[in-house]
Design a protein around this nucleic acid. Sequence first.
DNA 1: GGGACACTTCGGCGCCGGCCGAAACGTGCG
DNA 2: CGCACGTTTCGGCCGGCGCCGAAGTGTCCC
Lengths: 250, 250
Amino acid sequence: MTSRANRTTGAAGRTGGGRDPRAPGLAALAALVADETRAACLLALLDGRAWTAGELARHAGVAASTLSEHLGRLVGGGLLAEERQGRHRYVRLADARTAQLVEDLVAQVAPAEHRPRTLREAGAASAMARARTCYDHLAGRLGIALTDALTARGLLRQDTGFALTDAGVAWFGAAGIGLDRTGRRPLARACLDWTERRPHLAGVSGAALCRHAFDAGWCVRIGTRRAVRLTPAGERALSELLGVTAETLE
Amino acid sequence: MTSRANRTTGAAGRTGGGRDPRAPGLAALAALVADETRAACLLALLDGRAWTAGELARHAGVAASTLSEHLGRLVGGGLLAEERQGRHRYVRLADARTAQLVEDLVAQVAPAEHRPRTLREAGAASAMARARTCYDHLAGRLGIALTDALTARGLLRQDTGFALTDAGVAWFGAAGIGLDRTGRRPLARACLDWTERRPHLAGVSGAALCRHAFDAGWCVRIGTRRAVRLTPAGERALSELLGVTAETLE
DNA sequence: GGGACACTTCGGCGCCGGCCGAAACGTGCG
DNA sequence: CGCACGTTTCGGCCGGCGCCGAAGTGTCCC
């Protein structure tokens, strides 16, 4: 991959001079993402669920044997966590931190032009833009609308950073959405949306809100991927709690 | 690099199936960082200053011709900005966003064991751990101490996210540190420190504070790299304004 | 027990990309 | 004007990596 640095030729001795000792690790981490097939896997896994090796192989369009090696690298590099069940090997993103990293990388990619070619593709893209999950929180126009509504009501402030207000913490409590504040993960964090190019709520509170939305039947998954649909019950709940109307999402 | 996906063999037609169209872009971006020499350049440039091609070549321990090609890729990929002056080619990180991305990648790298081998190296490492710049803001124990002091005084809140309070915005105004709120960059943002493994203040306010610290003579650079030393004047100022004492940094 | 299935291991292939040195290019300086 | 120096271009070398298919391993189910 990268180790041509310590060449057999003259340069052998002098590399140690000033080079940052973290360079190899950084390069190795990036190399894990630097393959198109592995990148496709990471993007697929951004839905936050566990995929089997076979599913990923079909998704990426490579042989099962090829994908097996890729998974070995990704797991070995700590980007994926694996769980073996019988003859299946399930993998998922290692943690929220890793998911955030992949999201950040995606967000950095240039405008990422891609016009859908088929009607089916256009429909899917439109559904994804309307509402979807982003690892463990809600994104798309739904995620933005929720974030904006929280901000407008003084529950979240974005003008001086990105944090819940005291009223915001109370709102989650009143809505019966528990927030686990024991871990290292920040309560609120901005995640840049790739369709809207605007930040939406991630972190502990974003994940809790998303989980609650599914548990309470506010939204359901469409098909087998990341797209999400707001239910009538969800429309009512969000309208009551935050004043978010379905029109905002069209 | 990556494009072995569209093979000449059988798989040609079926790759399009489900694969995320953003995968190539993601892989290409990561590939820019996935080389040890380029990674060393990015790390060096994290000091926020512009380096010449020759300096980077010596730093990385490769031939000038080799480094020239690397710079071509990095600039082409949008990670670096270049500025030509006479026969020199100066490059720097493209923007704060890019710097943040590199920092995030570094932070993700496993514990990154590296014990200094020489006294000189140990001294440099210790100075870096005490105080340094991280692109355009202060890091190391100094950065942490400032962040903690701001938090303790109710100027910054980290418990519910990461944002300045109203009192915090006022504090910057009173201290004569202007905050440019016109851009898209967040006013406050957490940057994870690689020596302390704790977040410190980045974003517009972090950059403004750092700039002010240099302008007001609170600190000066040690040697030619990122390490920074607090001056007596800086000790007085930080003690008065935030109650930060030099002992905190030892 | 035996077959189906999911995954892994292995060998082989092709190509990409990093490396260098030599030569070309362009700027600045004496 | 000519030399020095920083940078770039070019050709050539070589190693690593992603790809595949075939064979091997382990699990589930009949």
